[in-house]
Design a protein around this nucleic acid. Structure first.
Lengths: 210, 210
DNA sequence: TAGATTGTTAATCGATTAACAATC
DNA sequence: TAGATTGTTAATCGATTAACAATC
């Protein structure tokens, strides 16, 4: 039965489900049971059935789940079919790493533009994405409603850039700076990517294992 | 009372404690109570006291916690004082972004070298870190015992590189590729940075909010 | 049909919160 | 001393696991 409020833990598992189902589909697997999926993902069959039941009924007794149709359902739940668009602020190394190597489209997001202050890169394309001067951000967002702003700018301008993105109507910010963003009660969603937190967790586990 | 087994949830909060305590210290705050810290971190005072009690007794009745000494304790718990060292495999955009912008030292990790196949970058320094040819990896690791291998190589060679790192004696791998690594029963710790998982979670929250 | 496997309800387990004696 | 705040024990809440009737 569909749930109203889905717990954070379940939501954080959804992208993993999507990833594994994509892998299975690519390998040509047509159907899978909750117990087989559980084994490959290190989850219990029960948990998988509970998780999925938050969103609907996607399986069939005696059969299991059709990999491809479950993949599509999860994609839908994740908002991958919402036609989200994104712009990158900051075409430094990290911004460029995302531009060149990260497949936004595989997450259902269309990356439409990048912005920077550096005259060297402005006017160029990277992986088919045009780089504009940051001064044209407002104008661009006005003409091209955008769901997601990706912050790969220096921390010193993170707050200011966040405010401009919010004013420009983005719905979410993917924040690669290590600054808290001033979102106040803007209704905006922020997803922080804290490299240091990740490295420190690794450091802990290494030290613990030793 | 010190705990033997500390839950994953607590460990994932430790880096946040560290980050907030560092901020407080930088702002010159000398002491803080669990309730004040809780307010600023969006946790309950109870939870903070419970979390910390897994590792020892760091506070004082009627006073609270000394910010600087608690920061040091958390640093210790996280293994930041273990003298961990790291090498980066892959000096492409992402590797370079880490080399130039990420402060390994702030996590207690000394970044000693990077490796790549591209003749253009080999032999150069980036932010004071020398770039060696990947063919010299074994020789280097042999001469310089290293705790952490950072994988910023193309996914196609991720598995192979992981194996070479493990053979070279690293204790943990910080994995930026989206490949499962073949760690088997090597006793190695892997910390995956899944950009797509993060973006998909953001996509979900945006779609849900709308 | 018989076997397999779902979705869901109930049971268990673990994590968070509340309460409070201890004490700085 | 009186007030504040800890560390810890007990209570609650939520998430995971187990069990099973329903059914493909």
């Amino acid at each position: 039965m569909k749930k109203d409020k889905v717990s954070r833990a379940v939501i954080r598992r959804l992208p993993r489900y999507y990833r594994h189902l994509s892998d299975l589909a690519r390998q040509g697997v047509v159907r899978i049971s909750s117990s087989a999926l559980g084994k490959s993902m290190n989850l219990t069959a029960s948990q998988i059935r509970q998780d999925l039941s938050c969103f609907g009924e996607f399986g069939q007794q005696g059969y299991g789940y059709n990999v491809e149709s479950l993949r599509k359902e999860v994609a839908d739940i994740l908002g991958m079919t919402q036609g989200h668009t994104a712009v990158i602020l900051g075409a430094g190394n990290l911004g460029r790493a995302l531009l060149e190597n990260f497949h936004f489209d595989r997450s259902g997001v269309r990356l439409t533009a990048a912005f920077d202050v550096c005259p060297e890169v402005i006017g160029h394309d990277i992986s088919g994405v045009p780089i504009y001067p940051i001064s044209e951000l407002e104008q661009y967002l006005n003409a091209h409603p955008t769901s997601i702003g990706v912050l790969t700018v220096p921390g010193s301008v993170a707050g200011e850039m966040a405010e401009r993105l919010i004013a420009g109507g983005v719905k979410g910010i993917w924040n690669f700076t290590n600054k808290e963003l001033p979102i106040a009660d803007s209704g905006i969603v922020v997803e922080n990517v804290h490299f240091a937190d990740s490295l420190l967790a690794l450091s802990y586990f290494i030290s613990e294992a030793t």
